[in-house]
Write a protein that binds this DNA or RNA. Structure first.
Length: 593
RNA sequence: GGUCCGGUAGCUCAGCUGGAUAGAGCAACAGCCUUCUAAGCUGUGGGUCGUGGGUUCGAAUCCCGCUCGGAUCACCA
């Protein structure tokens, strides 16, 4: 029985009446006060018919006598602070100690299946900072859901068709001289991205020339032969022109090879990848079927629409007059294919908040088409990453490239590590490994610690701090814990059996253990509200406590062997919690730094 | 204009299913390396929680108005 239930039952006995769960407000005692748990007595005043202090004392006295786990209490205003018996914490610590996967739930046979879509790149450009936030959030979400006992399928939808890809292809054909990733030494996605930029440049030159001839902007855009070529290419692609399709395949494969490298370095992966080139026709079928069923309507020009005015939204186009599909149609098709492949109970889309409206509509449409998960689909909407000067703009060249950023982080990690002499005793391989983990840990924590909903500012000049509330700080703490354990082992110190005597010393450890206690529930809560930031901050709190603890210890000095044993054990468990938490977030921790 | 989201220390952010004196990091200042890793620790200063009302024992937190900022309302994806 939990302390919560026990307290509730005892109070019911004391006042001889039924008390609801909401009336029992048991929370962690603030660190300024003495105690572990605090009961807020205000909601109980109506029942006790006494003032807050009297009520608190009355309850405190009763609990002290009837609940063995409560060994002491004090009252401050309307707050009843309870002190829990060391045996309880000891027991808890032992439980944690014996459970390697502390904080993780098992995935049962009939657990609900959640599919998480994230990343969703276009194949005409390399990944950028916005994708990094998306990837880290999506991957962390998957890890958290999985740790909470869900079956998780990570998926990616690649936007591999459309006019933008044709632009890259056209530029490559016209001015590429047969360039390949091998011949240029460029990563495939960057190579294609360069051709996309090149197309834009040539197109602008063409427009300028036309405008110099006296055409206005609109006329110039209409007369542009480059744009006409691109459109023609798209038409031929859709018609299945062999030459175009094989060029398309070759170039896309270059891009995928490039993406894979970035994903791998970032530590994210997918169970199943969908391509829009394979889903857009399915979407069309679904829409036509919906039309047959009378869910959608057709205009005179042949275009198909969904009337969502009854749901407070507008009319939405689903198929153009020429029968071609739009973005929404593709998402419907993708949903269909996915549902064919997996028994999806819950669908989560990790997509930026500029598409909030789109997903509102998609949810309604899928529901109308009879998809069970449609109504309950979750758009995990996150804010944009902005630069100090404002938004990233590809036209102004202010886009922060993902590969560049990662490389910069790792380089900075190396410089800092070398300055601090952290790598002095490492082999080159070890050093490379550590620097990679630290650099990426810094980046990941920096991104994940911010509430996903909020827009965040990224300052590339100041880059990312390695001090304070950062990934490396947490990794550092973990590394130190490992060091403690190594040295303990060298001295032949074993960890078991010495706990109770350590507790007798009555130090501050209860506080620390108490935070360990609430870890699983916090994870659960975080997963429900989809906020990895909650976990990140929680872990940070834990680490703070460890450091406080360590500081006290260095001041005390250590002659007492029992005390030492106790602290070693404790450190071990904090280390485990940190490790588990970090792995949930997809952040690796080095065991030495 | 409609809808949605945000506004907390100089900066970057926590806290938001109502609870005690609103917390961290950075930046500033003052201390701490023969003692398990100083990527650290301790202390000081720094706040009309955008604003006005309401709800109540109690509001950064809930409700309403206003205001500022962002997103969106395409036969783009």
């Amino acid at each position: 029985m939990s302390i919560q239930t026990s307290v509730q039952q005892l109070i019911e006995k004391l006042y001889n009446q039924k008390i609801s769960e909401e009336q029992i407000q048991l929370q962690r005692t603030k660190k300024e006060f003495k105690g572990h748990l605090t009961l807020v007595v205000f909601p109980l005043l109506k029942i006790s018919k006494k003032n807050p202090e009297q009520t608190a004392n009355e309850i405190g006295e009763y609990l002290l006598q009837h609940e063995l786990l409560i060994v002491e209490y004090n009252v401050i205003k309307g707050f009843l602070n309870l002190i829990i018996a060391p045996s309880y914490w000891l027991n808890l610590l032992n439980q944690i100690h014996s459970n390697e996967m502390f904080g993780f739930k098992e995935v049962s046979e009939n657990a609900p299946l959640v599919m998480i879509e994230y990343s969703s790149p276009n194949t005409n450009k390399p990944l950028h900072l916005g994708h990094i936030r998306n990837n880290l959030l999506g991957y962390s979400l998957a890890e958290i859901m999985s740790a909470n006992g869900y079956k998780v399928v990570k998926t990616n939808i690649v936007n591999d068709r459309g006019i933008h890809i044709c632009k890259s292809m056209l530029a490559w054909k016209n001015w590429g001289n047969g360039a390949t990733p091998e011949s240029t030494g460029k990563k495939g996605d960057h190579l294609i991205g360069d051709f996309y930029v090149l197309f834009d440049k040539k197109y602008k030159e063409e427009l300028k020339k036309l405008e110099e001839k006296g055409l206005n902007k609109e006329e110039a855009e209409k007369q542009s032969s480059l744009m006409a070529d691109a459109r023609e290419m798209l038409r031929q692609w859709e018609a299945g022109n062999e030459e175009i399709v094989s060029l398309w395949k070759m170039m896309n494969n270059w891009v995928y090879a490039g993406f894979d490298e970035t994903y791998k370095r970032l530590g994210v992966d997918f169970d199943k990848i969908y391509y829009e080139s394979e889903t857009y026709l399915v979407g069309k079928e679904q829409v036509l079927e919906g039309l047959k069923k009378g869910v959608f309507s057709q205009k005179e020009d042949g275009s198909v629409w969904a009337d969502l005015t009854a749901d407070g939204l507008d009319n939405k186009l689903l198929l153009r007059a020429d029968g071609t599909s739009v973005y929404m149609t593709q998402d419907i098709g993708t949903a269909k294919l996915r549902f064919n492949d997996y028994p999806i109970n819950k669908m989560v889309y990790v997509v930026g908040n500029e598409q909030n409206y789109h997903f509102q509509v998609l949810s309604l449409l899928l529901d109308k088409l009879g998809f069970e998960f449609g109504k309950g689909l979750v758009h995990f909407s996150y804010g944009m990453v902005e630069l100090p000067e404002g938004k990233m703009k590809s036209r102004e060249g202010t886009v922060v490239d993902a590969d560049d950023l990662i490389e910069e982080m790792v380089i900075t990690a190396r410089q800092t590590s070398e300055e601090l002499g952290k790598l002095d005793n490492c082999t080159p391989e070890e050093a490379k490994n550590i620097v990679e983990i630290v650099g990426l840990g810094a980046l990941k924590y920096f991104i994940l610690k911010v509430d996903p909903r909020k827009n965040m500012t990224f300052n590339p000049k100041e880059s990312i701090d390695f001090n304070g509330n950062t990934g490396p700080f947490i990794q550092y703490t973990y590394a130190r814990i490992q060091s403690v354990l190594r040295k303990a082992q060298e001295q032949g110190i074993t960890l078991s059996g010495k706990l109770s005597s350590g507790l007798e010393l009555g130090l501050k450890e209860e506080e620390l253990i108490q935070t360990l206690d609430s870890f699983p529930s916090i994870i659960e809560e975080a997963a429900e509200t989809y906020s990895p930031a909650v976990i990140a901050n929680y872990i940070y709190d834990l680490v703070k406590e460890y450091n406080q603890f360590y500081h006290d210890y260095s001041i005390l000095g250590e002659k007492d062997m029992e005390l030492k044993m106790f602290r070693l054990t404790l450190s071990f468990n904090v280390g485990k919690v940190i490790r588990n938490g970090m792995s949930l977030l997809g952040i690796r921790v080095p065991d030495r730094m």
